[in-house]
Design a protein around this nucleic acid. Sequence first.
DNA 1: GTCTATAAGGAGATAGAC
DNA 2: GTCTATCTCCTTATAGAC
Lengths: 201, 201
Amino acid sequence: MARMAVAERRAALVQAALRIIASQGVAAATTRAITAEAGMALASFHYAFRSRDELIAELIAYVVENESLAAQRPLEPGLDLESTIRIGLLGYLDLVAADPARELAMFELTQYALRTDELGEAARAQYASYHAAAEAVVKAAADLTGRTWSRPAGEIARIVVTLTDGLTLDWLVHRDDEATRPVVDFAARALAALADPPQEP
Amino acid sequence: MARMAVAERRAALVQAALRIIASQGVAAATTRAITAEAGMALASFHYAFRSRDELIAELIAYVVENESLAAQRPLEPGLDLESTIRIGLLGYLDLVAADPARELAMFELTQYALRTDELGEAARAQYASYHAAAEAVVKAAADLTGRTWSRPAGEIARIVVTLTDGLTLDWLVHRDDEATRPVVDFAARALAALADPPQEP
DNA sequence: GTCTATAAGGAGATAGAC
DNA sequence: GTCTATCTCCTTATAGAC
């Protein structure tokens, strides 16, 4: 392979690893598989990274900054808060359904990080990123519907992430939109109940 | 090691594997580690099991039948429904906190099963067991407080499992009782709202 | 039946030719 | 800088002695 700046090579390896992890899981992302996917020689790996765990750490950092719920669609206007949340959650689950292996991989990454001493901070950073993304969405949902939250947005966001984690696992295990639907309805109603009573004009 | 019936040997290997997985994760449960933990020769493994995946399948079946929420403490009497649920959830999180590595391992097992073609059914069985355990608890909570659920108990149970999965991940990532507490309060309030209005005597 | 010994292959990491 | 070739270790699985 032609000359590449080390930074560029690192980025290419992270992307290759991400493709493997998203489709086959963390365990399948061996240095051999990653370099093959990137079209590089095996030795190039250790020219760019000191170890496999160093790549995983950088990969989680990349995911944290560029992925998470970034693909979230814009909220639909003209609905009440509960419907806005419900449709938002269903849209999120559509993303899960569109690439289940990838969503499974996000859980695996968190858990790999939690098992690896030096990566515990990476797991927390991953969730800090989820919380920030969720906070933006819950603020937007309140603005869009002219409602206010009865609790700090950060607390609402944490609840949203807890619910989406649970919903994601439920869907990944059963792959059954119908069966997950009542849980989505519950989540939307319960979240909407955290808003202050609507203003009388 | 002395003679053992094959069934007994299989059970001993499953127990050994469970100890390793609970403390060090699924990836650490190699046939070598398992047989060493069980005090057997390596070759004994393939005398009892055809492959490592066969053991994992039996291990999940064991977990499904004997563990899950079985360690749940009895509910406290004399409280209203929301408090009963809140204290039940906090008790569950105490179990998570008492052995975080084990709880992490339960997630890993599900995800390993979801990644392995022949084990997809095992993951669903694991959740069916969770749902059954949760259903028993939600029925007990309603009975204890003299309330009735506005939805089928199976649906309430599924919501409970979704919430506990999310709560467990939240706690495992942050290990912060204080930070998880508002999410527990939310879950208890939202679940209690699924009961019919209390009877006027 | 149970063990030691070993096969056969995959892993991370590196030396050294170019 | 980049690659081939290799080192060392660890994996699952099995053959064959006892």
